[in-house]
Design a binder for these strands. Structure first.
Length: 96
DNA sequence: AAGATGACGCCCG
DNA sequence: CCGGGCGCCATCT
């Protein structure tokens, strides 16, 4: 789980659900959120909601958009252009 | 032990 | 596009 998140290359993004599934825990999207909050040093800004939606609120949301644009990520309105930046995991499966 | 909570996700009207 | 409802999982009351 944590490894999947850490494996996200700059300029790419993934969704909470996708990460959970790639880690072998389909449906544990909420767990991913918990990890992002507990484990420091993770590329949290590269994790968005399904369809590329920013799930943060207020200042934090702006912060995330900023960082992503910094890495060259483009947006389609309010959502991230998944068509081009969504990261495709391999057969990962691991522990947190 | 039961209920509430959250940076979620999917389906339906 | 916008809610509303329900399922998910780990934590915290």
């Amino acid at each position: 789980m944590v490894r999947c998140i850490r494996a996200l290359p700059a300029g790419t993004v993934s969704s909470y659900g996708a990460i959970a599934k790639a880690a072998g825990w389909p449906g544990a999207a909420r767990q991913v959120v918990r990890i992002l909050q507990q484990v420091p040093g993770l590329p949290w800004h590269r994790v968005v909601g399904s369809g590329g939606a920013i799930k943060l609120t207020g200042e934090n949301a702006a912060e995330q958009r900023f960082r992503l644009r910094m890495e060259g990520v483009t947006f389609r309105g309010a959502r991230v252009d998944m068509k081009r930046h969504e990261f495709r995991f391999k057969r990962a499966r691991s522990l947190k």
